[in-house]
Simulated scan of single mutants.
Amino acid sequence: LARVTTPAGSGTRLAGPEAGRAAVRRGLLAGAGLLASEQLGLAEWCLEETVRHTRERHQFNRPVGSFQALKHRMAQLWLDLVGARAAARAAADALATGSEDAPLIVAVAQAYCSKVAVRAAEECVQLHGGIGMTWEHPAHLVLKRAKSDQIALGSAGRHQDAIAALVGLAPPL
């Protein structure tokens, strides 16, 4: 942190307080909408890498991915990913077209995609076993990225509160 001082009259005012706040709000909204796409990409990478690994890794002379319990976990992750893809695309479209519903759509995308990205990264680490947390495999880095993205521009709870406010409901307790 720093304190910046400038001589009086040496700057040029670009915007007043209201225009400045509006510009910051638009920038944060665009950032949150684009972050949903990054979270989707993280989740997709995690699922692809996990499927690849479970096909190659063998236990009891069978690929680990052939075990029903792991198939169910990956299938559920794929379903979550389909929803995240729809939410992230809707947010990107709302931002690109300047939709008046962009704040609501972006909040929905952030509330959903952040949870999916973290869950996908956690499953990736889990289903890779010990190798998932080592320096030899990037799964642990993806998990750290997903966790930091989860709170980067507001937590899922903050976005859920924004959704409630935008549709005229009381926020969840």
Rank of each mutant, 00 (worst) to 15 (best):
Glu48Val: 04
Leu169His: 10
Thr6Cys: 07
Val116Met: 06
Ala107Val: 04
Gly98Ala: 03
Gln39Leu: 09
Ala91Cys: 01
Val64Lys: 11
Ala15Phe: 14
Glu44His: 15
Cys46Asn: 04
Thr12Gly: 11
Val24Leu: 08
His159Arg: 01
Arg119Thr: 03
Leu42Cys: 11
Ala32Val: 08
Asp161Ala: 08
Cys46Thr: 11
Ala152His: 08
Ala102Arg: 12
Phe60Pro: 06
Gln150Lys: 08
Leu29Val: 09
Ala84Asn: 10
Thr134Ala: 13
Ala75Trp: 00
Ala36Ser: 09
Arg85Asn: 13
Leu173Asp: 15
His159Met: 01
Phe67Pro: 02
Gly41Ala: 15
Val167Gln: 06
Glu136Gln: 08
Phe67Asp: 10
Ala109His: 08
Leu70Asn: 02
Gly65Thr: 00
Arg62Ile: 13
Ala15Val: 02
Pro103Leu: 04
Leu153Trp: 07
Leu153Asn: 05
Ala87Lys: 03
Val4His: 10
His53Phe: 12
Gly154Ala: 02
Leu166Phe: 04
Val24Ala: 05
Ala15Asp: 04
Gly33His: 00
Arg13Lys: 10
Ala121Gln: 01
Pro103Arg: 03
Trp78His: 11
Val142Met: 15
Leu141Pro: 07
Lys115Phe: 14
Leu34Val: 09
Arg52Gln: 06
Glu56Gly: 05
Val51Asp: 01
Leu14Ile: 07
Pro171Met: 05
Ala162His: 02
Thr134Val: 03
Asp93Arg: 14
Leu28His: 05
Gln160Ala: 09
Ile151Asn: 07
Glu44Gln: 13
Thr50Gln: 01
Glu122Thr: 13
Leu47Asp: 01
Lys147Leu: 12
Leu95Gly: 10
Gln76Leu: 06
Ala165Met: 11
Leu40Met: 08
Thr97Asn: 06
Ala152Cys: 09
